[in-house]
Write a protein that binds this DNA or RNA. Sequence first.
DNA 1: ATGAGAAGCTAAAACGTTTTAGTTATCTTT
DNA 2: AAAGATAACTAAAACGTTTTAGCTTCTCAT
Lengths: 342, 342
Amino acid sequence: MKKVSISDIARKAGVSVSTVSFVMNDKAVKMRISREVIEKVENVAREMGYRPNQLARGLRTGKTKTIGLIVENISNAFFAAMAKTIEDEAKKYDYKVVYCSTDNDETKARELISMLSQRQVDGYIITPTLNLADEIRRLQAENKPVVLIDRYFPEHEEIPSVLVDNYAGVAEGMEFLIAKGYRRIGLVTIEVDMAHMHDRLQAYYDTLRKHDMPQDRRLVRQVPYGYVHQAALEEIEDFLKGDGKDCDALFFLTNYLGVLGIEAAKKLNINIPGDKAFLCFDDNDIFRLYTPTISVIRQPICEIGQQAMTALIERLRHTDAEVSPENTPIKLAAELVPRESI
Amino acid sequence: MKKVSISDIARKAGVSVSTVSFVMNDKAVKMRISREVIEKVENVAREMGYRPNQLARGLRTGKTKTIGLIVENISNAFFAAMAKTIEDEAKKYDYKVVYCSTDNDETKARELISMLSQRQVDGYIITPTLNLADEIRRLQAENKPVVLIDRYFPEHEEIPSVLVDNYAGVAEGMEFLIAKGYRRIGLVTIEVDMAHMHDRLQAYYDTLRKHDMPQDRRLVRQVPYGYVHQAALEEIEDFLKGDGKDCDALFFLTNYLGVLGIEAAKKLNINIPGDKAFLCFDDNDIFRLYTPTISVIRQPICEIGQQAMTALIERLRHTDAEVSPENTPIKLAAELVPRESI
DNA sequence: ATGAGAAGCTAAAACGTTTTAGTTATCTTT
DNA sequence: AAAGATAACTAAAACGTTTTAGCTTCTCAT
């Protein structure tokens, strides 16, 4: 059984395709189609189970009512939650979102953008990888609005972005640890050469300096990106047994690192917070449930998603909208959530 | 700057659109296009940054190379992992997947199917809700292959499905608990009137009967579906303080219920496994990390995803493929993973 | 009786592809 | 020299919509 098209309906109802189209798009009244014909067409359409072909529609109108969402990894709790809010938000404006993961791989990111572009999405929300700015500028040149989330390109103010205030968040966490009396604070971060991580790291060093505390490079461990679970775990165990051994507090710069941290601590029988206090940037279900519960700097995930959508929709409405430099990146406040681990 | 179309290339290269199309689709040799023209076209296309419009292509060919994946909730660990394998698997066959969540709501599921159908996806992998069989039969009638995952309709053998052997999995878990000496085994399940949950529940009762153990309805608590986190948590707390108080073991029938279970146990200071042993159907990161680690019946997520894709691809290849009744549902073995909680 | 305007529709082009059926020019074969 | 084969391309239809411009027919004011 083939799908029903507008001309099938036209034939059965004894009218033209144009008429059917007008009725299906609620333009019938404007086009002065008579009450009877409208009803007739509506009935036939319902009986035949008509569903408009969005490919044809998109081809004709140039709008697919779809936005592309590119995140690092959709199975990571942070991005999953982000995707959910963005999807909900999009629905309000009658957009569908299709999402994909880059795994932080530049090549994959380019392929995904290309794929979404081929599928004619109307706009993009992107968690960028390194070196992606040129590809994104190309989208903008094609008049496709883009909003970055979670990360940004400091040297590209013309690309709008929405993210947490990484610097302030980490600084707040550091102040908290210091106020609680911790003096040897280790840092576990991931080796990603992008501005948002630099900001976090910078806040760590700056806060130490502000309090005249020594800045010991050996207390900072960068886990190489792309390590599989086991390798990353071993890297952290190595740190906990070696350079980080006599830290009294540990600050993990991403939620995944924090999870690895508690796994490693468990294996090494490190008592939290007895041996070491734990603080993690970005929350996770596990942190709420673990014994002890783990303190975090919580990102305003919903807000980020919402603001990103708002910014995107605005640009979809009038595609000529310029980004005013003082408005980007939009930085939202993080929230310190103290729990038992400190 | 407008997008580049095939006719822009044709004009610039001084050939016809057909020629360009042949070149772009690697049919140039078959169509005896000369070496020089092929190179010329390829160069022009590259220079102009051509990206084929998939809408137009899909409209013309009737194939979008896209499959629709409908799950219950993409932010649930089980479905997130499932989505990931299906996406990876799909890529092998050069398909893109677009996913959406039903939240187990029948109306929403129908809307999602309709939306995917309008977008002309080539095939579907669906975690069905109640009463969805008719809508799915409609897809099949339109010659769009469908494979169910995780759940199935026992009365519809013509709809292929791939899922874990729920009955055997729960039976194995029960045997394990009984062998370990537990005698008052409580069950926490979710109020979903679908065959896969019936199978799990039935295995619980059957195993008790097999061992001549009493079947006490009060030891079974059904959490209503759709309860928000807080309400569900309270329901389980209520059970732990009331009817389930003197159980020596608790079997949670879904991973989300298990998470709520440990949260409730923590709040009520219930010692695992001292006061009560815990066993959960379906694994979760938290169970691996929690203290104590929680024993689970692990579903073969990757295998389910792979087999579902294989079945779907086969049907996409020859759309007339019938389901032989003895092949559905395809039931895959679960794996008992004993940890500290028992 | 005529013309203007309105009411109620329809024809046809366009969106960007793919694909079938040609067309023309050149080369073989007899 | 004629007939056929082959090489190298192209024209045009089709996919299912939307939308602009137009076509009838009717009503009413003059």
